[in-house]
Design a binder for these strands. Structure first.
Length: 283
DNA sequence: TCATCACCTGGAGA
DNA sequence: ATCTCCAGGTGAT
């Protein structure tokens, strides 16, 4: 493998808020990506997949050099890139990503992780790989047919009904990830937002982390703080108050204009930077 | 169109 | 001990 840029930093990438179902055991990271189990080693660097995953988890097909150069036009982003050059965007299993971020609403990282682990335990398939045995993420069919009681037992709370409906939408073909991957950003966002439990922020996360939409720029509490703190002069209508539906769209188009077509990468570096600055815990 | 408010759950701080 | 508040938001009114 030709080394053209800074190597991937697994720890930083896993702990950047994109994924939840990961654990560090000894020196390696074990994770669940849909029906696939992954084992990552930092040095020597290796990625082992239980099912020969053809989708590239670390997006090696991206022209990283070009992207980092492009987003580094902005000085704050440039600093964030310099601080965590090994951070990468991840290409996740779309269904898992979709359910994960529906579960993320008004919750904390630890709590989200716990909900998703419960779902795997109750509805996933046990699989052995490299001496480990763990449950994969549930299939859409399983969650679509799950009883509310079982979902509630997974501590999903008010999200239980959204998860079931979302899984049913996949089963009925209302949501088709393969087509969404090919569709443009706007179409993808609109399709996702038809599902209850998915608003702008969650839709952007799903689009960015699993559907190859690099122009997605999820605006959550943290991103909003970042915009307020460092970019007030560029985005003057940002306040502490929640971003309303209409404002979100307007703000996003301004963001795209300012940060460029790889805004999703910018967001990831900025998000990581600010979370670390506030010493927030991850997985 | 916009502002409030409730919402499961668990952990932190008063 | 008990209460309050908040956590990577969203839907209903």
């Amino acid at each position: 493998m030709q080394k053209t840029f800074t190597a991937i930093n697994i720890e930083i990438t896993i702990n950047s808020g994109q994924v939840f179902l990961w654990n560090k055991i000894k020196d390696q990271w074990i994770g669940i990506d849909g029906q696939d189990l992954l084992i990552l080693n930092q040095s020597p660097f290796s990625v082992k997949s239980s099912s020969n995953n053809i989708d590239n988890f670390f997006r090696a097909d991206d022209n990283l050099k070009k992207i980092l150069l492009d987003i580094s036009r902005d000085k704050i982003v440039a600093g964030a890139v310099k601080q965590s050059p090994g951070l990468r965007l991840i290409r996740q299993d779309p269904f898992q990503c979709y359910i994960s971020f529906i579960c993320s609403s008004n919750s904390s990282i630890q709590n989200i992780k716990s909900m998703l682990e419960n779902l795997c335990k109750k509805f996933g398939t046990r699989k052995r790989f490299e001496g480990y045995e763990l449950a994969t993420f549930p299939k859409s069919e399983t969650l679509a047919n799950a009883s509310m009681r079982d979902l509630i037992e997974c501590k999903l709370g008010f999200r239980a009904k959204y998860v079931k409906e979302a899984a049913q939408a996949v089963e009925s073909g209302k949501i088709d990830f393969a087509s969404l991957k090919k569709a443009d950003y706007h179409t993808t966002l609109e399709s996702l937002k038809k599902i209850r439990g998915i608003g702008n922020k969650v839709a952007d996360c799903i689009a960015l982390f699993s559907l190859d939409k690099m122009e997605a720029f999820p605006i959550d509490r943290w991103t909003q703080r970042i915009l307020l703190k460092y970019y007030k002069k560029f985005f003057d209508n940002v306040t502490e108050k929640p971003v309303t539906e209409k404002k979100y769209e307007k703000l996003h188009s301004e963001i795209l204009e300012y940060f460029g077509p790889y805004a999703g990468y910018s967001q990831q570096f900025l998000f990581k930077m600010e979370r670390d600055l506030n010493k927030k815990n991850w997985l």
